[in-house]
Amino acid sequence: MSLIKWLALIPFIGLLGGTYFANKVTPYLFGMPFLLGYCVIWVVITTVIMVVIYKLDPRNREGDAQ
């Protein structure tokens, strides 16, 4: 877990650092301006990363009925 949770830093780097390079209108991503599409990609990546962290976090293994 301790190593896995560093995955959570990736979206910070991608969204904050990447903006300087992704700031353009074309090419269109999923029909959206490049920068907007870029943000959307990071939202999706964030969700995937949070699923991975959730699954590997031993604290979430206990049953739902607590």
């Binding site: 949770k5 959570a8 979206p11 910070f12 969204l15 700031n23 301006p33 920068l35 907007l36 943000c39 959307v40 990071w42 939202v43 964030t46 990363i49 949070m50 962290i53 959730y54």
Partner: peptide
């Protein structure tokens, strides 16, 4: 373009919320 910030900040806030 500046409007896109609204999508970005929520995303990062939720990551922090986990911890």
């Amino acid at each position: 373009g500046p409007t896109y910030y609204i999508i970005g900040y929520g995303c990062l806030a939720y990551i922090m919320s986990y911890f």
